[in-house]
């Protein structure tokens, strides 16, 4: 299997009111091309910080990240065009229409006009928003916004798709639609990496799952193997097994 993301000894510390906080503590792992890779862990485990560093948004304190053979921190300009990010916040412009939101993203990626028009129509149809294409997004339901936010991230046809908490706060129908979309992107050859709180989803869709706790990666394997090694019935128990039952502050 061909590695597409290689992380070595990744560390990130923050200064918070004079106190040093280690958000990510010596994490190393590899993501392979074409896989669906899930990251689970309690709030504050370091998932989002790791995500920020993988997507060139935050500079690591130390350690190395290679994305598709390119060095994060040195070749960010070449990495950004090949990755797509669905942020946790919906991050749409409420006073632009769905089509205008997509167009703006397309322009930032310098997609040729004709290709862009075709892609916008294709993706709007794919997520069932073709009838709302020319409405301002401020009137969209949460599910519609989520679907639009996803296709904003794939306008430039990225090789790797980062997806932060894709299904938090969504109704079951939208969640199903989102996961269907994720599988579709994966079949199209994209590598998917996401964070989630929903254990059953991670269990159903991910090829491999990484469990993070207190800034460390405490386990990484196929969901089945994780269940076996921890002697658990489901991923929720795996999660509790590795991260403890206390609520993290």
């Amino acid at each position: 299997m061909e590695p597409i993301i290689e992380v070595k000894n990744l560390v990130k510390t923050f200064d918070s009111r004079g106190k040093k906080i280690t958000a990510v503590n010596d994490v190393s792992f590899t993501v392979f091309k074409g896989e669906i890779f899930g990251m689970i862990g309690p709030n504050g485990a370091g998932k989002s910080t790791t995500f920020s560093m993988l997507t060139t948004l935050t500079k690591p304190t130390s350690g190395n990240i290679k994305v598709s053979g390119l060095d994060v921190g040195k070749q960010d300009d070449r990495i950004r065009p090949i990755i797509g990010i669905v942020p946790q916040k919906l991050s749409l412009y409420p006073l632009l229409t769905a089509r205008e939101n997509l167009k703006f993203m397309g322009k930032l990626y310098n997609i040729p006009k004709k290709v862009m028009e075709e892609r916008i129509d294709y993706y709007l149809r794919l997520v069932g928003l073709e009838d709302s294409a020319d409405r301002f997004t401020e009137g969209f339901s949460g599910g519609m916004k989520q679907r639009l936010s996803v296709i904003c991230a794939v306008m430039h046809d990225p090789q790797i798709l980062f997806w932060d908490e894709p299904s938090t706060g969504l109704d079951p129908q939208t969640r199903q639609a989102i996961w269907k979309l994720a599988r579709k992107f994966n079949e199209d050859g994209k590598t998917l990496i996401f964070t989630t709180h929903y254990m059953e989803e991670a269990e159903n869709i991910c090829d491999r799952v990484a469990v993070m706790n207190l800034g460390k990666m405490v386990a990484l394997d196929n969901p089945e193997v994780l269940k076996e090694t921890s002697g658990s019935l489901n991923l929720e128990q795996v999660f509790m097994h590795f991260t403890g039952e206390g609520v993290c502050n």
């Binding site: 946790q88 916040k89 919906l90 749409l92 930032l108 990626y109």
Partner: peptide, 13 residues
């Protein structure tokens, strides 16, 4: 606040 800035900065711009 709305996150659109971060989204914009995730692109090659």
């Amino acid at each position: 606040e709305s996150g659109t800035l971060v989204r914009m900065l995730m692109t090659p711009i």
